[in-house]
Write a protein that binds this DNA or RNA. Structure first.
Length: 723
DNA sequence: GAGCACTGC
């Protein structure tokens, strides 16, 4: 009886006070009716039975590791369990981090309903709020705040000890983004200073061991780094097979160390229907052919309703399979249900993505061909059957050459299980794996955490700006190779974000506040110097570079011709940067109907709206940091301004420069690597003296994306300027 | 001649 009753009482007290001096009485009683109605369904959640265990565990310990599959109700219920706890005090706040904006907002809305309190900033009495980029909704009475991981890290810049919170709940830890790993490291460090801070780590996978070891290991901060530090892999996974270059730089070692925190673990069953798994008898090379075969087998055998979700690698495979399925479906006799084939990937326009949420018409089966987006970010309703090709595209950063590669890889077992689970959300289901059971068993247990796959410069600057002196000693769940950390430190020095001693510089502090990579942040700083004076323009360009591609993708020859006419006035022969600037200036100048303007120019309206949001945010931040020397833009961007703009990018991306070779290819100055201009660039197919680019990505070959012309003379000047 | 998925006071 404890918690719900208490929460109810305190909500009543609050409600009385509000209703006496506000006209919202009917609204208040509606909120309470809704709350009481929801209480019944909350009591059905698997986690409801465990609330005493969970409360006791965190009362007696500093850290709670809570594992529970989807459907256990942990994200909504756990924060409510703690509100009335003595350690939580009043007005002690609870932060709950989420990987995605939509999740943060919808969970806040749901929990507010369950508590019978208005949401966020809608009332000063609201107890539940959220904070995501471009949208903060909290009140003076907020007790539970859902926020994205990035927002919690941003809050740490203002208040490194997170003093307003008594408890931080980190949700979806199994996703292992860099931000999650950083937050776990900061919280672990923080608990040595703040004995009153409780930490809850929630994960969908049952494996609590590595998290427990992480929190149990003593901090290595303030001890000198020496060559005897222990690689962490060796104690968990047998012999660590790493060469000297890739060896982890330190680990957390539970041998001969005492716990720095008291840790409790708890596992909660999910609410999931059973899913039958079937494998291939022998492996297949052609996953498109195998998918096609399996889709029709399921479709012809199984009754409707019951939609089918097919996990594939990417847009290209999805579109070719869609064509095949639609062709074959024409040959189905009327004895069988109809088929509705729907693609799903991030680059798909919003309206097309929405189609998956509409129920299939009678006697029709939806067949959704999806990327990994349906594994975590989008929940497709109505699915009873999953077909899993066992593959996904994965990004991997090669830090020696500064190259991102995007390659098809085998998924992990946990990822395969996640995909399978999508068939059992609403009823018993079936999962067809297009690989053998032996192949499944030989998959890696978990996916490689992002921190081992990405450029670490932003993560390192994040640490430095929050007071981490020796970043090589920062506690990370899976420490990356020392070489990767040192590369990041070196890059930050070259950008001027760190001084020669490795301490953060005033420029570094400014960069760290911006929602940008350090390199793009440095471009902003460069644009603000009095000699350069093109901050307004550079903000527009950087805004484009930090959102999805603004030009709509085009499939057909006819579409390409149409697009080149529609976009003619926007294209700039100097390259993509000035083309983006022209697009933003034209869009911003459009006063009447921006959506129509975007359609007319075959530009993504969704992307342009994000550009405008980022532009506004960056402008406000630059103003606050007093970076503006002049307020005025140079609307008729003259040649001298154009030169200064591109030179700003040289300051942030000095190693991303390549010169033309006689054979028509480009080779980088830094590593003599061959790069090709990406077909999405306005410079595609053109030959110029030298180019600068913002992204270097290997897919079928090494491509430069977001490319502009540079003159060799500018390069010499830029190098002089840096010396 | 091409685009896995997220996120940021």
């Amino acid at each position: 009886m404890g918690l719900p009753h208490t929460v109810e009482t305190s909500a009543n007290v609050k409600r009385k006070r509000v209703s006496e001096d506000s006209p919202g009485r009917t609204h208040q009683s509606q909120l309470q009716q809704r709350r009481i109605k929801l209480l019944d369904s909350r009591k059905q959640l698997p986690i409801w039975q465990r609330q005493k265990d969970i409360r006791d565990a965190l009362r007696d310990n500093d850290v709670l590791i809570l594992s529970g599959e989807t459907g256990s109700g942990k994200s909504t219920q756990v924060p409510q369990f703690f509100l009335d706890q003595p350690w939580c005090g009043f007005p002690g706040k609870i932060a709950v981090t989420q990987p995605r904006r939509v999740a943060a907002i919808s969970l806040a809305r749901r929990v507010a309903e369950e508590m019978g309190t208005p949401l966020g900033s809608s009332s000063p009495a609201s107890k539940v709020g959220y904070s995501v980029r471009f949208d903060e909704s909290t009140s003076p009475s907020t007790r539970i705040k859902f926020l994205t991981e990035g927002m919690l890290l941003q809050e740490m810049l203002r208040d490194a000890s997170l003093s307003q919170y008594k408890c931080v709940i980190v949700d979806e830890v199994h996703e292992r983004s860099v931000n999650i790993d950083l937050i776990l490291g900061f919280l672990k460090q923080l608990q040595t200073r703040r004995k009153d801070l409780k930490v809850v780590v929630m994960s969908a996978t049952a494996d609590a061991d590595s998290l427990q070891r992480f929190f149990a290991a003593q901090l290595l901060e303030n001890t000198r780094h020496d060559s005897k530090s222990v690689p962490n892999d060796s104690q968990t996974d047998g012999e660590a097979e790493v060469d000297a270059d890739d060896a982890p730089w330190h680990g957390f070692d539970d041998e001969d160390q005492q716990s720095s925190s008291n840790i409790a673990t708890c596992h909660v069953e999910g609410r999931q229907y059973p899913v039958i798994t079937r494998y291939l008898d022998s492996p297949t090379e052609d996953t498109i052919e195998a998918s096609l075969h399996r889709i029709f087998q399921i479709h012809c055998k199984e009754p409707t309703p019951g939609d089918l979700l097919v996990f594939m690698t990417g847009q290209e495979a999805i579109q070719s399979l869609q064509k095949l399925v639609e062709e074959y479906a024409l040959g189905l006799t009327t004895d069988y249900p109809k088929m509705l084939v729907l693609p799903l990937f991030a680059a798909l326009p919003q309206a097309a993505q929405q189609l998956i949420f509409q129920p299939a018409p009678r006697n029709t089966r939806k067949v959704i061909l999806t990327t990994n987006i349906a594994e975590t970010s989008v929940t497709v309703p109505g699915v009873r059957f999953v077909v899993d090709t066992g593959k996904a595209k994965v990004k991997q950063f090669r830090n020696r050459i500064g190259l991102d590669s995007l390659l098809v890889k085998q998924i992990s077992r946990s990822s395969a299980d996640q995909r399978k689970g999508r068939a059992g959300r609403e009823a018993a289901g079936q999962c067809y794996r297009l690989y053998t059971e032996e192949a499944y068993k030989s998959l890696d247990k978990d996916s490689t955490p992002e921190v081992l796959r990405c450029d670490l410069s932003q993560a390192v600057l994040t640490m430095k700006a929050r007071g981490v002196g020796d970043v090589l000693r920062f506690p990370l769940l899976t420490p990356p190779p020392k070489e990767a950390m040192e590369k990041a430190l070196l890059q930050l020095c070259e950008l001027g974000a760190l001084d020669e001693h490795g301490n953060i510089s005033p420029i570094g502090r400014k960069i760290a506040r911006l929602p940008l990579t350090p390199a793009l942040g440095r471009v902003i700083i460069e644009a603000a110097t009095p000699e350069t004076d093109c901050l307004v323009e550079v903000i527009d360009i950087v805004a484009c570079l930090s959102v999805e591609h603004i030009f709509l993708a085009i499939d057909t020859e006819e579409g390409r011709e149409k697009a080149s006419v529609a976009r003619r006035q926007l294209l700039r022969r100097q390259g993509d940067h000035l083309t983006y600037l022209a697009a933003v200036q034209a869009y911003a100048a459009e006063q009447s109907d921006r959506r129509r303007w975007a359609d007319d120019h075959m530009i993504s309206h969704r992307a342009m709206q994000s550009v405008m949001d980022v532009r506004q945010q960056l402008t406000a931040q630059c103003r606050q940091a007093k970076l503006f020397t002049t307020q005025e833009a140079h609307p008729a961007t003259d040649e001298a301004t154009q030169e200064r703009i591109v030179k700003c990018f040289l300051r942030g991306f000095s190693s991303n420069v390549a010169r033309a070779c006689p054979d028509g290819s480009y080779k980088t100055f830094a590593g003599n690597q061959t790069v090709a201009i990406h077909p999405s660039s306005v410079l595609f197919g053109r030959k110029v003296e030298a180019i600068i680019y913002n992204q270097f990505v290997y897919t079928n070959k090494a491509y430069a994306r977001d490319v502009s012309v540079v003159q060799l003379r500018w390069l010499e000047e830029a190098l002089d300027g840096m010396a």
